[in-house]
Amino acid sequence: MRASLLLLADSRLPAGGHAHSGGLEPAVAAGAVRDVPALADFLRGRLATSGLVAAALAAAACAHAARGGGAWAALDAETDARTPSPAQRAASRAQGRSLLRVARTAWASPALDALAGTPGGPHHPAVLGAAAAAMGAAPREAAEITAYMAVTGPASAGIRLLGLDPLAVNRALAVLAADVDAVAAEAAGFADGPWAELPAASAPLLDLYAERHLRTDLRLFES
């Protein structure tokens, strides 16, 4: 099981993540991120807001899938409610579709099969949670992977967009690791509670960036 979890968290997982910057590209375009310290601040903010929300959704999805995981519409609606930007919803569903394709190819699970029926494709955290459950992982582990990916994806985009020193970016991620663990632990606490009470931390600037990004002519990343 441990190796399967590592596969799921690996940035080489062929699930489309490389084409998403998690809002970093529009932040760079706006001049808000130009160097490693600013990137580290961006990542800390993202982790505390959309990272926490996604990790809690993944933990809840993992617990739901472990119980059989037939009906996903309510969790899908809770995710929409916590994702005000239509551009971010679309990006989440695009990544969810891609991850679902990968997960169903690798791990058999009725919960993953049920997610395939989500109109427009399932949200990314739901698939992450269900995939973790498919390999017998706990909600805490689903939350850890989700929180981890919330910062590693944009960090990698920063290296590509700004030519930042990869060693310096890696050090920033290492400094952030304890925060990632703390966010994952907090998120996992919501796994078995009512979905309506899942965290709903918002990051209005990320929402605005996501919308602005869609209307930008020159862009490398989908989101």
């Binding site: 080489r12 489309g16 993540g17 490389h18 695009a94 891609s98 394709r101 590509r160």
Partner: peptide, 21 residues
């Protein structure tokens, strides 16, 4: 049109999901 996140070869070789989609 598909966007490739600054890695055109990744999108056709290592991670083909956007193109499959």
């Amino acid at each position: 049109a598909v966007r490739t996140g600054a890695c055109p070869h990744t999108a056709i070789r290592d991670d083909i999901s956007a193109n499959l989609d």
